[in-house]
Every structure is written in C-alpha cells, then in structure tokens.
Design a protein around this nucleic acid. Structure first.
Length: 205
DNA sequence: TGAATGATGCGCT
DNA sequence: GCGCATCATTCAT
C-alpha cells in the first residue's frame, strides 16, 4: 500500500518539487469513482520574480490559496471554459505552485471517456484543461487539502517503472507571454501524454 | 501540415 | 472592458 506524499514534500523549493513530481501518481477519489494517473508534465509558477505567475502582483481573491500553506490544490478557470490544476508549494506567505499539464490515465478510464470525446486514451489528459475535464475537477475543488483523502499524490512503487525511469527534460513554459526565458517546464520525454513535444520524428499510432 | 481563430466566463484595472 | 497558465475546428499553403 503506497502512502501519500505529505506536506513536507510540497514545503520545498518549487523547482525541486516539480522535478520529483514527474512519475508520481495523482489520485482523485471523485463522487463518481476513483481516478488516477501518472504525472508526466508540469510547470513551475513562483510568485517572487515570475511575471507569469498569478501571484506576481500580490494577493487577490482568486490566488489566495497560493499564499497559504503548501500541499493544497489551486484550481482556477481559464478562457471561460477550462480549469487548471496546480499544487501549492513552499511555505505560507511564499506564493508558488506547480501546474499539472499532462498525465497518463491509470484508473477510471471509463469515467474519463464519458467526459471527453477523444478516441485515444493517451489524449484524455494531455493538457491542463483536458485533464481537469477528464477528472471532473472544477474550481469547486479549489483549496482541497492534498494530504486529505479526496485528492492526493502517491509515489509510484519503485518496481513499477522497471523498463526505465522517466526521462526528464526541461523546456520553456507554454501559453504565457511573460517570463518565457525560464526553463520551468518539466516533462517525461518517454510519454505520449505530454501536451507539446518539440519535434516528433514520426509518430504512427 | 501548420497557422489562425472562435468559444466563453471571470478576475482585475 | 480587456486579457487570459486552453482546445478544437477551420482555413491556407
């Protein structure tokens, strides 16, 4: 029985948390059933000195969760129709979070397929908006405690990836206009569930 | 095969 | 009122 990651995991420098999040297992015990997936793509948003972070301009009603304790979920609505899931990191009063951009579905595939119309399973969660839709996460779940039993992360058991550990690659973040120079995006180059790959040679599925 | 764009709601100035 | 940490579809080449 794997144990969930506790608050000390999130109470660390955000870039460190990012790198270790790749390959962990995201679990959501939703009212409709259990869902889980392997994290393969994340981005860091650090309030101090990061113009792209919602918290860069100070505390507001929307981003207040990021200013709180680490280990909570920050979920917000973007473009009027999509939700994005973030995990709050670093100490209280130090606003920072990790955006989950892509995951590989493990459990609850049937539920995800009902919510999404995609045909390929790996397309269910290869993007921040899509993963929230497939998981059924909305800003009603904003502020959930990640050390509770609804939504949490747990380590993949060591033997699970016997084929090879995730190949972690850094790149620039996606979909932002400020702070583009920072290499604060981390993804597993071996996964298909990454939202944007640099240049796939030939991908025939 | 890639670039452009519309959908759509809310937080902030 | 504007702009946004997106996605799917349309249009152009």
């Amino acid at each position: 029985m794997a144990r969930k990651l506790d608050r000390t995991f999130y109470d660390r420098p955000t870039l460190e948390v990012c790198e270790e999040l790749i390959g962990q297992r995201l679990v959501y015990r939703s009212p409709d059933g259990n869902l889980s997936a392997r994290v393969v793509e994340v981005e860091a948003y650090i309030g101090q000195g990061d113009p792209a972070c919602h918290a860069a301009r100070g505390k507001t009603g929307r981003n207040r969760v990021m200013f709180g304790k680490p280990g909570f979920a920050y979920i917000y609505l973007i473009y009027g129709m999509y939700n994005c899931l973030n995990l709050v990191t670093e100490a209280e009063g130090h606003p920072a979070a990790v955006l989950i951009r892509g995951v590989e579905p493990l459990e609850g595939l049937e539920l995800m397929r009902v919510r999404s119309k995609t045909k390929q399973d790996w397309q269910l969660c290869n993007g921040p908006g899509k993963l929230c839709r497939s998981f059924g996460l909305t800003r009603e779940q904003n502020g959930l405690d990640l050390t509770g039993d609804k939504l949490y992360l747990e380590p993949m058991s060591v033997g699970d990836n016997s084929g090879g550990r995730p190949r972690i690659v850094k790149s620039t973040r996606i979909g932002i206009s400020a702070g583009q120079e920072k290499l604060w995006r981390f993804y597993d180059a071996n996964s298909q569930a990454v939202s944007k790959m640099p240049k796939p040679k030939a991908s025939v599925q």
